[in-house]
């Protein structure tokens, strides 16, 4: 049973080895992340300063900072360039090699993406976390919830990957990726709580946003870390909504792949 997954492990290992060659890039990614914190730290500080109260929409300043820093860390962690790789292979004809090899195209991409996540985790997320803990250690809760967080994060990754993968499949039709990928990125940023915590939105919009898959990527894992009042029922609701998104998206992608593969034309080879 496990034997057939061994080949995917190999793909994951390969993709880790590939990204390690871009050390320069990761150095700048870390500095860029720090700059991102600098902007939003000062921005939110001045927002709280000029509002005159310490709590806005039920959140204090340190809570907001921890929330958006965690959201950004997850954003960086899940940045695996899946749709870029897929569209590059479509344009260059490389996809032929993917299709004739004895593996599942979806699983192979997932394995590749996991390799990226591993690398991101150690080279970007860990440094950011250390930074966070040294500056604002007070508002993150440590305990059994770390376990829930890890579980929730894995589901979040599957959702994030599935969205990337379906965007990659659209490039089978458009043969270009920049526009659609950047649109995906900003829509997720705006609607997931990465840029502004969801509680800042009007109640009705907040309700809708929480039902979307984007909140399941960011809002739910973060909630397990920063909300002290979660009960068993809350966890159940959160995990059920995440799991159902995973199932919906996996099913959709399976169908979408069958459709998309029909339009692929490969020039020569």
């Amino acid at each position: 049973m496990f034997k057939q997954y061994k080949k995917y492990l190999k793909i994951t290992k390969n993709s880790i080895l590939t990204v390690t060659t871009y050390r320069f890039h990761f150095f700048f990614s870390i500095i860029s992340s720090i700059l991102y914190f600098v902007i939003y730290f000062f921005l939110w500080r001045s927002i709280y300063d000029s509002s005159g109260s310490t709590i806005i929409n039920g959140m204090t300043f340190p809570q907001v900072i921890v929330y958006i820093s965690l959201a950004y860390s997850i954003f960086v962690l899940f940045k695996t360039w899946t749709e870029w790789g897929m569209s590059r292979n479509i344009v260059s004809g490389q996809i032929m090699m993917d299709l004739i090899k004895p593996y599942n195209y979806h699983h192979a991409n997932l394995a590749r993406s996991i390799g990226f996540v591993f690398f991101n985790f150690f080279c970007i997320t860990i440094p950011i976390f250390i930074l966070l803990f040294t500056v604002f250690n007070s508002t993150i809760i440590f305990g059994i919830n770390l376990l829930y967080f890890a579980f929730s994060l894995c589901l979040a990754f599957l959702i994030s990957f599935s969205i990337d993968y379906s965007i990659g499949l659209t490039s089978f039709y458009t043969e270009s990726i920049w526009g659609i990928s950047i649109t995906k990125e900003v829509v997720i940023m705006a609607l997931s709580g990465t840029l502004i915590p969801l509680s800042f939105f009007p109640d009705s919009i907040e309700f809708i946003l929480k039902l979307l898959p984007f909140a399941a990527i960011y809002h739910i894992p973060i909630s397990t870390l920063v909300t002290p009042t979660l009960g068993v029922l809350d966890y159940c609701i959160m995990f059920i909504s995440q799991i159902s998104w995973v199932i919906i998206l996996l099913g959709f992608n399976k169908y979408f792949f069958k459709q998309a593969i029909k339009v692929v034309t490969i020039n020569g080879g």
Binding site: E175, S176, W178, G179, I180, S181, I182
Partner: peptide, 14 residues
């Protein structure tokens, strides 16, 4: 053309 259209939409969304 499609790429152009999607790119314009992308940049406006950004």
């Amino acid at each position: 053309r499609v790429d152009f259209l999607i790119s314009i939409i992308g940049i406006i969304f950004t």
